[in-house]
Simulated scan of single mutants.
Amino acid sequence: MANIKSAKKRVLTNETKRVKQQAFKTSMRSAIKEFYKKADSSNVEEAKQLFILAEKKLDKAAGKNMIHKNNAARHISKMQQRLNEIAQ
Rank of each mutant, 00 (worst) to 15 (best):
L12E: 15
K5N: 07
K5S: 10
E55W: 05
K64L: 15
K48C: 02
A62V: 08
D40T: 08
V19W: 03
K20W: 09
Q88V: 10
N84C: 05
Q21F: 06
Q80A: 15
V19G: 00
E45Y: 07
K5W: 10
V44F: 07
A23P: 00
Q81H: 12
V11H: 06
I67L: 13
H68W: 08
R18Y: 09
K56N: 13
A47W: 00
K25I: 10
A7P: 00
D59V: 12
A73S: 15
H75P: 00
L12G: 07
S41W: 05
R18A: 05
V19D: 04
Q22C: 02
E46M: 04
Q81W: 09
T13I: 11
K60S: 11
N71L: 13
K20F: 10
K20Y: 11
N84Q: 13
E46K: 08
S41L: 13
A7M: 11
K57Y: 08
Q21N: 14
G63D: 07
K9V: 07
L58P: 02
M66K: 04
K38V: 02
K20Q: 15
A31P: 01
V44K: 13
Q49W: 02
A61C: 08
F35T: 00
S77L: 12
A62K: 04
M66V: 07
M79R: 03
Q49M: 11
K9D: 07
I52V: 12
L53I: 06
S41F: 06
R29D: 05
K25V: 07
S27R: 09
A54I: 01
S6Y: 04
Q21K: 07
K64F: 12
L50R: 04
K57R: 11
E46D: 11
F35L: 02
N14R: 10
I76D: 07
A23G: 04
E34R: 14
N71S: 15
K5G: 01
A7R: 09
L50I: 01
K20I: 11
G63R: 11
K5F: 12
K69S: 15
A47E: 02
I52T: 14
R18L: 05
S27C: 01
A62Q: 05
I4E: 13
A54R: 00
F24A: 02
S6Q: 10
K48D: 01
K8E: 10
E45P: 00
K33W: 04
S27L: 11
N71Q: 15
Q88R: 08
E46Q: 11
K56L: 09
V11Y: 03
N14E: 14
L50C: 00
E55R: 14
D59E: 15
E15A: 13
N70C: 08
N3T: 13
A23Q: 14
Q49P: 00
N3L: 14
N14A: 14
R82D: 08
E34D: 14
A73Y: 06
A54M: 03
N43C: 03
S77E: 10
V44A: 09
A2C: 03
A39P: 03
R10K: 12
H75K: 14
K69N: 14
E15I: 09
E45L: 12
L53W: 02
S27G: 01
A54P: 00
K20P: 00
Q88G: 08
Q80F: 08
L53N: 10
A2F: 06
K9S: 05
Y36I: 04
E34Q: 14
N84S: 12
